[in-house]
Design a protein around this nucleic acid. Structure first.
Lengths: 273, 273
DNA sequence: ACGGCTATATTGTGATCACAATTATTCCGG
DNA sequence: CCGGAATAATTGTGATCACAATATAGCCGT
């Protein structure tokens, strides 16, 4: 389990892996962050970057000792992530990374398709040269990490790219909702780590940058939508074993209605990994 | 109730008022809820119903003694609500109800307009007779509380009405995002407590029910959008002193771009209120 | 009477201990 | 060799104490 190529770097003892390079994806407050913020940011980064597998159980004390923080800050961090639906709390009072189902995948994609184009449109003419330069930097970092095969860095740059645009829209409400969505979406990416960019479709990020330069709002919207749909196809066809290939087409996110219901919302003993 | 008609029931000593009728707006888990869940549900209900004024400071120990719970459960509840952006945590490490600004109001309305019609459309043909009966019950409760002038009950029934529909869409992701939005939106309602339904526009809830009965998806979408826009006009014109009346038309949520930026995200000492 | 300084009170953060419940492990009888 | 019962370990929840930082009240000098 630990040595496979398509598997995870440090699955059981993700301690050192988690703490590495935490502040790269998000940092914006200087008044010396608290310990619970450090714990939160570490876990958050691991989630967005796809470092944590779906269904993995999260133990309070174990994670605290792994991360080198006390139990109390870790408790606050886990509580916060649970509130953001980035962690699932079962009725056993035990928390874990949410499971991966086609229904949840479609829901997350629909949320992205509803919110992200709107955020981008809000942001369009609020993007000044400095912001555009940062956006280009993120895209360059993406291409670089793509060539190097560094999937985690690729994910981090992808997150930074999108949210650099969305935050320019100056809607804390929408970006807050989207951060929750991305944290829920991150663990899905883990399953396609080996094949990130295996089929390199036309880069929708360049299209988005061009649209921003030309202040073309409809093209920007289309670029964001196309980028989301690309990822949707890539993940949807790789994660879930599609027996009937026509289902991939009609299970579109905007169409919704996956038809499958989960019965009790969350009532299943979580496996430790 | 006890005091002025348009004013709040118990502003400073909201202890007994907060604990009253907490499980009416939301209850769904039987394995004896924990103390932190009780505290969370109480505060959550107070937020959705509009019982808490914007800008009000939330003290951990004070709120704990007021609610009759320990400090630790209250800490967890506040942490959870802060993560859902229902409470604002300042860089002073001090939390408060978010402030009321036109920018935030527009952002919340845009989020509602983006998510709620989509949720309703998802739900349409998943609404069976039992669900429709519950929806009618909520609407009846709304009309009743409207006649009695009970604004809090009106708000609770309104929440129940909408989410009875949205939850039928079976998208935990979208409903989770919407719950955050509604908790942020609740305190805005407090400012128009006296004038709820003062101008009784055509009831969009009946229109929604009719659309559900006839399985008319476009009419349902229009009904939800119209309901949101009605509340937007009602609140937007009452809360904020609109000097130029044309601004009310062009500050539409879908258009976004309120133009006002808040500078530092959250850095202002909260008044205890 | 008013402004600036000190002292008191209250705040959030974090550690440590205790407890009940659940899970994992061990051990014994078959 | 296997299955079930009893023990041990680990889990989340909550209380209590300690501490530094902030806000409030009080006071005195002008």
């Amino acid at each position: 389990m630990s040595g496979r190529s398509e598997d995870f770097p440090g699955e059981a003892d993700a301690a050192a892996e988690l703490t590495a390079a935490v502040g790269s994806v998000d940092d914006q407050q200087q008044p010396e962050p608290t310990m619970q913020d450090r714990a939160y940011q570490t876990l958050r980064h691991a989630l967005i970057v796809g470092k944590l597998p779906p269904g993995k159980g999260i133990s309070l004390r174990a994670m605290a000792t792994d991360l080198g923080v006390g139990v109390m800050p870790m408790r606050a961090a886990i509580a916060r992530l649970s509130a953001e639906n980035a962690l699932t709390v079962h009725d056993n009072r035990r928390v874990s990374i949410p499971d991966m189902t086609t229904a949840r995948f479609d829901q997350l994609m629909q949320a992205r398709l509803l919110l992200e184009p709107a955020c981008a449109m809000r942001a369009l003419d609020a993007i000044d040269d400095a912001t555009l330069a940062r956006i280009r930097t993120h895209e360059a970092r993406m291409n670089l990490s793509y060539q190097n095969g560094d999937a985690e860095l690729y994910m981090a740059a992808n997150y930074a790219f999108h949210f650099e645009i969305y935050r320019a829209g100056q809607s804390d409400v929408l970006t807050g909702l989207l951060e929750s969505v991305w944290m829920q979406f991150g663990p899905f990416m883990r399953k396609v780590y080996g094949m990130v960019g295996s089929v390199r479709l036309t880069d929708k990020h360049e299209m988005a940058i061009n649209a921003i330069e030309r202040r073309d709002i409809t093209r920007l919207k289309l670029a964001i939508e196309a980028d989301i749909l690309d990822g949707m196809d890539l993940l949807g066809q790789s994660i879930f074993t599609q027996t009937s290939e026509k289902k991939a087409a009609e299970s579109s996110a905007t169409a919704g209605k996956t038809g499958r219901r989960s019965g009790a919302p969350q009532a299943r003993p979580p496996k430790e990994n």
